[in-house]
Design a protein around this nucleic acid. Sequence first.
DNA 1: CGGTATCCAAAAAGATACTG
DNA 2: CAGTATCTTTTTGGATACCG
Lengths: 134, 134
Amino acid sequence: MQELADRTLAGIGSSADNKVDCSSRFLLDQIADKWSVLILSALCDKPLRFNELKRCLEGITQKALTQALRRLERNGILARRVIPSSQIAVEYSITPLGRTLEEPFRALYTWTINHVDTVLQAQLAFDERDKEPL
Amino acid sequence: MQELADRTLAGIGSSADNKVDCSSRFLLDQIADKWSVLILSALCDKPLRFNELKRCLEGITQKALTQALRRLERNGILARRVIPSSQIAVEYSITPLGRTLEEPFRALYTWTINHVDTVLQAQLAFDERDKEPL
DNA sequence: CGGTATCCAAAAAGATACTG
DNA sequence: CAGTATCTTTTTGGATACCG
């Protein structure tokens, strides 16, 4: 398993026949989505309750947030703790496993911050190109 | 811009009021998906033609591949080059901008390889828990 | 507060056929 | 080979209402 991890990106997930590894594909499907990155970002500082989280991710619906949280919990990335009180409270916190994702996610996130302008320009250029194909 | 990039993940994309930055959200939506990671992985070694790529990503439909490639091209991550010949050939290659994504993607990819077992176990545990809620 | 259930519309995925 | 076009089926998103 370590030998796989040590491969360069070029070889990552590829076996000798150059086919991409199925297990990584499955996991990427589980974790490589916008809300997971943003939720983990929000929680990596300190635990948050459902509605606190919802306010951080302004624009997310409670349905989408619930679904994303369930998947992250199921995958062991974060923990859900019900705090019994008169007004029920549910606290979400990052697990040790989730912590190991912090670095990769930060790298991704930092990239988006640093390159958003470049990407925007590329999009403009691309859209101009096929607007006038002559 | 650099000051943003230097924040911890906790603060990433958050402004003073703790709300997540919209531009990073938009970009994450564009790049943080399974096929983008896998396609870039495949291309980061050497350029590949459409069907070569398709074979690497065994299981992807040509529609999904075409769409992912178009988005990556539009975002300036990879370049499309038509090689005129009797049998038409189209070569996809990583751009300099795409190269800057190589590291973040590799980090993500490596994580999936290293943690797939742990996640699988977490899923089993989770699924057992609510199978028998008594 | 922190959800679940339901319904509908919209979008995405998939299969198949066709083309320069 | 490298797609596009079309159609069908699934999934998703969003709004709303309700519950412990």
